[in-house]
Amino acid sequence: MTSVARDLPASPGVETRSIGGHRRARVRRRLFSRGLLYVAATGLALWVLAPIYLITITAFSPRPVVYGYPKEVIPSQFSTDTISFFANATGVLPSLWRSVLVAVVTLVASTIIGAPAGYAIARFAFRGRNAFRLTVLSTRAFPIVILSIPLAVTFIDWGIYDTVWSVALMHTALALPFTILITSSIFVGVPKDLEEAALTLGCTPATAFLRVVLPLALPGLAAASIFTFVLSWNEVFAAVILTLRERTLPALVLSQLNDSPIPFRFAAAWFMMAPSLLFIFVIRRYLLGLWGRVSR
């Protein structure tokens, strides 16, 4: 009973028994709660991963299996039949291309428009800085719904309704507040000293930005861009309101949802999900920085 405690030099002899006992109990409790934590961690991971696993094996089963019942948790055959059925369905490939186009335009436009503002917030102390920050933050309270409907009317007036441009503009507006806040936190992360050092070494403010700030901010900016891409890639409400024939992929899937066969839907879900998985994996190190800090 006391042998453990005797090895501990700091324990005074008299109280060895009780301290050793407590300590052992505590160690046991610690190990137990550690174990419990791993169980919880695994349970939560399964909760997240199981649906992804199930949709993946569904999407890669042949169509008869997708229609079949009961389904097998361990798939017996692998097939791209369902996926290619989806990919070859009318309108899917063009809409896929449109989705990519919209997302790329969105990320480029929101970065070009938003990053300078992010930089200004990060580097300059100017009158109205806080007011601007608050305005940007508060745009979050405006639902996509309330923007989409009047913008649809506006875009009809402008003659760009039912084009990828209308969706891209809308998505840029949605992404812009995030871009501004995220880029500002990225630029804050580049020490001001480095920029000033560049200024003392012969740079103009512009060359200091290009040669020092930009290279250092680039990984963060890339992560933010990927996030913007995912945001646009996933967005469906505005896309379905602002287009009729020129559907993006989610808009196409949504508008045909209740008339489409089951394999089409499941393959579509997997198809929409897969790039996001990859992208989140690529930017996993930046997640906390991007989201956590911005939402303060």
Partner: peptide, 22 residues
């Protein structure tokens, strides 16, 4: 663990709806 729990961050409402439909 962080990555696994963060995965659904990239999944759209529509995709999630269909996944749970499955």
């Amino acid at each position: 663990w962080l990555y696994v729990y963060a995965i659904p961050l990239g999944i759209s409402e529509l995709a999630a709806g269909i996944i749970w439909l499955a």
